[in-house]
């Protein structure tokens, strides 16, 4: 574990750490534990989905067929691209190119914003407008959602949309939090903060963003591609 950096004075080393290596390892382990916690957080909802899909498959099939897989597929592409730019931002931070870090982070932000724009313009509002939002006013419009209006078991259909809104909503919330982190990282990049020994913040953002991406990679087939 001995390392040359031990003897060098590093102004960024927190006082309670012995050396930079210890700090790096501690922060990395902490980040992975945070992600483990996130897996359990989403895992509970995935579990609920699995149980109800198994119990009420017909309702889940009808619900899924009313979703537009083209929009969902396009969003998957945007999100995967944003993961690529996030990975490039990490790489740029490791090589100390702060201008590139900022640019790639802006790209990540824009791609993520496109994802949310599609979701918040073409996916959620029509459903809320035409009675596909679960709750007391759940009454799918026969013109816009004929399949749903014709489906008899409205109770379990609501269950499908309830899980849909909660899980995609929770996913969107994680993206919005990610935007906040991106803006903070861009600010740091503009102040030339990152370099070969100081890139952990970007790397951890990358891990987080990939996690959010992976959640969507599961959500997409679960909700849009049920057959």
């Amino acid at each position: 574990m001995s390392s040359a950096v031990t003897d060098e004075k590093n102004e960024f080393l927190s006082a309670h750490f012995q050396n930079e290596e210890q700090e790096t390892e501690a922060c990395t382990l902490g980040m992975w534990l945070f992600l483990a916690q996130e897996v359990m957080f989403f895992g509970a909802m995935f579990c609920a989905y699995a149980v109800y899909r198994w119990m009420y498959f017909d309702a889940f099939l009808a619900g899924s067929q009313s979703l537009n897989w083209v929009l969902g597929g396009a969003n998957t592409v945007f999100l995967l691209l944003s993961s690529f730019t996030a990975a490039m931002a990490v790489h740029s931070a490791q090589t100390g190119n702060n201008r590139k870090v900022a640019r790639f982070l802006w790209a990540t932000l824009v791609l993520g914003a496109i994802f949310l724009f599609i979701k918040w313009t073409y996916e959620w509002p029509p459903k809320i407008q035409y009675g596909v939002f679960p709750g007391m006013n759940f009454n799918p419009d026969a013109h816009h959602y004929p399949g749903l209006a014709a489906f008899a078991d409205k109770g379990h259909l609501q269950l499908f949309f309830w899980l849909y809104f909660v899980m995609t909503g929770m996913h969107a919330l994680h993206m919005v939090i990610g935007f906040g982190v991106i803006l903070w990282l861009i600010w740091m990049a503009n102040h030339n903060h990152f370099g070969p020994r100081r890139y952990l913040q970007v790397e951890f953002f990358g891990l987080y963003w990939h996690f959010v991406d992976i959640v969507w990679v599961f959500l997409f087939p679960m909700y849009y591609l049920v057959t």
């Binding site: 996130e38 359990m40 957080f41 509970a44 899980l163 909660v166």
Partner: peptide, 21 residues
């Protein structure tokens, strides 16, 4: 803890919106 957090949150949301999970 995250599992109970999301479970009780679902209970809370269910109560506010009157939808049944």
């Amino acid at each position: 803890t995250p599992v109970v957090a999301i479970s009780v949150l679902l209970i809370g949301i269910e109560r506010i919106w009157g939808v049944g999970i």
